[in-house]
Amino acid sequence: MSRDGQERPARADVVASLDAVIDRTLRDSELVHEHPTPGRWLVDLPGTKKLKTVCGLIVGEHALRVEAFVCRQPDENREQLWTYLLQHNARMYGVAYSVDRVGDVYLTGRLPHAAVTPEELDRVLGAVLSYADDHFNTMLEIGFGTSIRREWEWRVKRGESLRNLEAFAAFAQAGSRRDDGDGGGAPAGGGDSPDGGA
Score class of each variant (00 low, 15 high):
residue 33 H to S: 13
residue 43 V to K: 01
residue 176 S to E: 14
residue 71 C to V: 15
residue 147 S to R: 14
residue 102 V to F: 03
residue 143 G to A: 10
residue 61 E to C: 09
residue 45 L to V: 02
residue 186 A to G: 12
residue 163 R to K: 13
residue 54 V to M: 05
residue 10 A to S: 13
residue 113 H to Q: 12
residue 94 G to I: 02
residue 4 D to F: 05
residue 94 G to H: 01
residue 116 V to Q: 06
residue 138 T to P: 00
residue 115 A to H: 14
residue 193 S to I: 04
residue 153 E to N: 09
residue 25 T to P: 09
residue 148 I to D: 05
residue 148 I to M: 11
residue 77 N to L: 02
residue 82 W to C: 01
residue 13 D to S: 15
residue 83 T to P: 00
residue 153 E to T: 12
residue 83 T to N: 11
residue 194 P to N: 03
residue 158 R to A: 15
residue 103 G to Y: 00
residue 171 F to Q: 10
residue 187 P to Y: 04
residue 183 G to D: 09
residue 192 D to S: 13
residue 151 E to N: 08
residue 116 V to D: 04
residue 38 P to K: 06
residue 158 R to G: 03
residue 149 R to Y: 00
residue 147 S to K: 12
residue 100 D to M: 03
residue 38 P to L: 08
residue 158 R to N: 13
residue 159 G to T: 05
residue 47 G to T: 06
residue 143 G to I: 10
residue 7 E to K: 03
residue 109 G to D: 00
residue 88 H to T: 04
residue 189 G to D: 09
residue 161 S to R: 13
residue 43 V to N: 03
residue 117 T to N: 11
residue 7 E to Q: 12
residue 130 S to Y: 06
residue 134 D to V: 09
residue 152 W to Y: 06
residue 138 T to R: 03
residue 165 L to Y: 08
residue 107 L to Q: 00
residue 12 A to W: 10
residue 23 D to C: 07
residue 149 R to V: 15
residue 118 P to D: 04
residue 34 E to W: 07
residue 115 A to C: 12
residue 44 D to Q: 12
residue 11 R to M: 07
residue 11 R to C: 02
residue 71 C to R: 15
residue 138 T to W: 00
residue 166 E to M: 13
residue 117 T to W: 11
residue 129 L to Y: 01
residue 139 M to R: 06
residue 40 R to Y: 14
residue 196 G to S: 04
residue 192 D to N: 08
residue 190 G to I: 08
residue 174 A to Q: 14
residue 135 H to K: 03
residue 165 L to I: 04
residue 145 G to N: 09
residue 9 P to G: 06
residue 62 H to V: 11
residue 133 D to S: 06
residue 179 D to M: 11
residue 39 G to R: 08
residue 192 D to V: 14
residue 147 S to T: 10
residue 194 P to M: 08
residue 6 Q to G: 02
residue 121 L to Q: 08
residue 170 A to E: 14
residue 39 G to K: 08
residue 71 C to D: 14
residue 159 G to V: 07
residue 174 A to D: 13
residue 26 L to P: 09
residue 22 I to H: 01
residue 102 V to P: 03
residue 147 S to Q: 13
residue 194 P to I: 06
residue 117 T to L: 12
residue 15 V to D: 08
residue 81 L to K: 02
residue 137 N to A: 09
residue 28 D to V: 11
residue 124 V to Y: 02
residue 12 A to P: 03
residue 120 E to H: 14
residue 114 A to P: 00
residue 69 F to M: 10
residue 6 Q to H: 11
residue 187 P to T: 10
residue 71 C to S: 15
residue 93 Y to V: 06
residue 90 A to L: 11
residue 62 H to P: 00
residue 170 A to N: 10
residue 171 F to Y: 15
residue 86 L to S: 07
residue 34 E to Q: 14
residue 53 T to W: 02
residue 1 M to D: 05
residue 85 L to D: 02
residue 52 K to I: 15
residue 43 V to E: 03
residue 178 R to D: 09
residue 46 P to W: 01
residue 166 E to A: 15
